[in-house]
Amino acid sequence: MTKFLLAVHVLAAIVAVGPVTVAASMFPPVARRALAAPDDPGATGTLQLLHRICRVYAVVGVVVPVFGFATASEMGVLGSAWLIVSVALTALAALVLAALVLPGQTAFVEGGGTVRQTARLAMFTGMFNLLWATVTILMIVRPGSTTGA
């Protein structure tokens, strides 16, 4: 059962978090292009699509920690420091996405937004991506784990 849960957890992370990471990273440059050419319907449509991808896959991404907790419980590592740090960083990544990235994207999609805001949005997106990269590394390395690497 552990292998099944771990496989679902990893696949869910790839399928759910991957698209958010890529779409969120693409959003600020497209927003800058849209600001430079406000009459370009292609840029506006692309912004809407990228924002929709981020919103939908953010919701789908909830299954990642659900299966992560199930896997950790099955493995008996719920109290491990590497897992607790990973959970905290995952929660922080979700907070950055929900409170900073998605609202910043919404401002652009709804017709607002400035060049300065694209820089802030790029910074918040970078923070989100860095948090997920750190969680991924912790999940692979598992410092101090007795379950093997």
Rank of each mutant, 00 (worst) to 15 (best):
V63Q: 11
A133R: 06
G79I: 00
L83K: 01
V63K: 06
F4Y: 03
G113P: 06
G18F: 00
L11H: 14
L6N: 12
V56A: 06
P65L: 07
F108I: 12
Q105G: 14
T44E: 15
A37W: 05
L78R: 08
A81G: 05
N129K: 02
V85D: 01
T21I: 01
V62H: 09
A12I: 00
G68A: 06
L6A: 13
L50P: 14
S86P: 04
D39V: 12
T44S: 11
G112I: 02
V59R: 14
A149S: 11
G144K: 03
V15Q: 01
A37T: 13
A119C: 04
V109L: 10
T114Y: 09
V64S: 06
L83P: 02
W132C: 10
R120P: 01
V77L: 05
V77W: 04
D39H: 15
A23T: 04
A23E: 05
V17W: 12
L130I: 13
A91N: 02
V30K: 08
G76Y: 09
L138V: 07
L121C: 05
M75W: 09
T71D: 11
T2Q: 14
S86C: 03
V30T: 15
R55W: 11
P103Q: 09
A81N: 13
P29W: 10
Q105P: 06
H9V: 04
M1P: 12
V141F: 07
V63A: 14
G126A: 11
S145H: 02
L92R: 01
L47G: 05
H51W: 11
F124W: 15
A37D: 15
T125E: 01
G126R: 04
A99N: 04
V64L: 08
K3Y: 14
V20F: 01
L95G: 13
F108V: 14
T146P: 00
A7N: 13
A37Q: 15
V77M: 07
W132L: 14
R52P: 07
P28F: 05
V141S: 08
I14D: 10
M127D: 13
L11K: 08
V20S: 02
H9R: 05
A72E: 04
F4W: 13
L100Q: 13
L102G: 06
V15E: 00
T90W: 03
A36D: 14
A24R: 01
A149R: 13
G18Q: 01
L121I: 14
I53V: 15
V135Q: 02
A99W: 02
L47S: 06
A43C: 15
V66K: 07
G104T: 07
F67R: 12
V10N: 07
H51N: 10
A13D: 04
P28L: 06
L102I: 15
L102H: 01
A36F: 03
